[in-house]
Write a protein that binds this DNA or RNA. Structure first.
Lengths: 257, 257
DNA sequence: CCATAATTTGCGGGTTCCCACAGTCGTAAC
DNA sequence: GTTACGACTGTGGGAACCCGCAAATTATGG
């Protein structure tokens, strides 16, 4: 029963391999994958005792890879090994774990742990099949998160779309988009100074839209990695919508709702 | 003459140490630092043959550390070892290299190179004192970059400030801020479709401010790491300006330009 | 089934932001 | 000097955006 590693970065992969080989020799061989697609393939073929997945990988992310692995191999024990406790991933992982049958064993571990601690965490999942949330990440796990609607709005905002375009993309009215954004702003821009004179200043000092963008980045509700992937998808939709828009315009020059 | 490594991530540091120890044994010992402050201290004390610096580190970044090292040890050979070719760093490094006397030898190397290639690159700087730009990064090195003014405006925009607040921060008129932002938008949002009907659609589809934000992130003109550091500084200024604003308001309720 | 909450929509308004047209100021090159 | 360029400022208008109020629609739970 081998251990499977998925990590695109050469240095981290080599380090992890060497560490696990030394400490968990009885599980050899250590299998390696450098992207999400191949880790799914190998996991389903080899059914390893443990998968250690980096979350941010080119192509299929570690989270999506986990979904695919659990689908074909529900008892898989998976450790997410990550640099940052981004809420965006935590939320997705929660949903996947709940949706999977079992539910399966998983861990969520900070890359920056000292070796000894990291090894204890790995052993807990590998040997005992326990769930293991890194204490460094516990805050992010217990904090309230965005609803799907708000997350969707946030994505399109962060990709630079106008309210008009978001409305088209989500089949909403303009006012509907504004409504979603309002609740989003409320969640992201909770100011500890309510009613104080500072509130007036802050209202002048911030552009609420970009401020929410910044806050979302800071809290890991979006990140550059995911944005770029989403941006590629958006381009395709934009291409199609440009055509649709052109046909809407030619007959009469009125703008859709 | 030792080699000095600065890298906050445990895995990457261990990998790099092991690799250099194996391949460049004659330069032992390999010294390690986990943050920018200590790497500067060690470099000035030990005057190593080569420094390998991760750029994104907590506290003092690799770029700022390099500036400090070259200041006290101008012949230092420094390799920047990074995951992404962010223009923001490239621009800063260029300026530092030009400003330093010598100018000193440096390299700029992608973390994801295969070992053999990485070792060749390292040898070029370590043994020969050559300048070494990773071919993967050459594009970013030749692209035109923002002026200091535009970069400043971009930062405050990305931190979520309103035009009004940027004006206060930069001692400009509101119109001056708009002017800077206009040139910024022009540089960031160069559309390959000039004059076509698509241009009309894009004007409707994008919120120019957040779109520029997204583009700047994508091209690495800003990144989360630097933003968070800048955000901490901004907080202090905001604190002071809130007070100043309060005193401006009490005498008469008019808003300064 | 009803009740409660969440979401969406419309309307009106106030504000910020973007931009085109000008005009000023300072620096640098001819 | 003047010519050119870049950055900053002013004016004014139009568009997009934010928000409060209120009603309609759709979930969600007892």
């Amino acid at each position: 029963m081998p251990i499977l590693i998925a990590e695109d970065n050469v240095a981290q992969r080599a380090y992890l391999r060497e560490l696990l080989e030394r400490e968990f020799a009885e599980y050899k061989p250590i299998l390696e994958a450098a992207d999400g697609e191949s880790v799914v393939r190998i996991a389903l073929a080899e059914r390893p005792q443990l998968c250690v997945l980096d979350i941010q990988m080119p192509g299929l992310s570690g989270v999506k890879a986990a979904r695919a692995i659990w689908k074909g191999f529900p008892e898989a024990r998976i450790i997410f090994w990550t640099q940052f406790p981004h809420e965006i991933y935590i939320n997705e992982i929660r949903k996947i774990v709940r949706a999977a049958e079992g539910p399966p064993a998983y861990g969520f571990i900070d890359k920056n742990n000292p070796e000894s601690r990291f090894l204890r965490f790995v052993a807990a999942v590998l040997e005992d099949g326990a769930d293991m949330i890194d204490p460094n990440f516990k805050d992010a796990f217990t904090q309230p998160l965005l609803t799907d609607f708000e997350a969707e709005a946030l994505y399109y905002l962060a990709l630079g779309l106008s309210n008009w375009a978001i409305a088209r993309k989500c089949h909403l009215s303009l006012r509907g988009v504004e409504s979603r954004l309002t609740t989003l702003y409320e969640k992201l821009l909770v100011t500890d100074a309510e009613g104080t004179p500072d509130e007036a200043y802050d209202k002048l000092a911030f552009n609420i839209r970009t401020r929410a963008y910044f806050e979302a980045l800071r809290r890991g509700l979006i990140n550059q990695d995911e944005l770029e992937k989403a941006g590629a998808d958006l381009e395709k939709w934009l291409e199609r919508d440009r055509k649709k828009f052109a046909t809407e315009q030619t007959p009469e020059s009125k703008r859709a709702n």
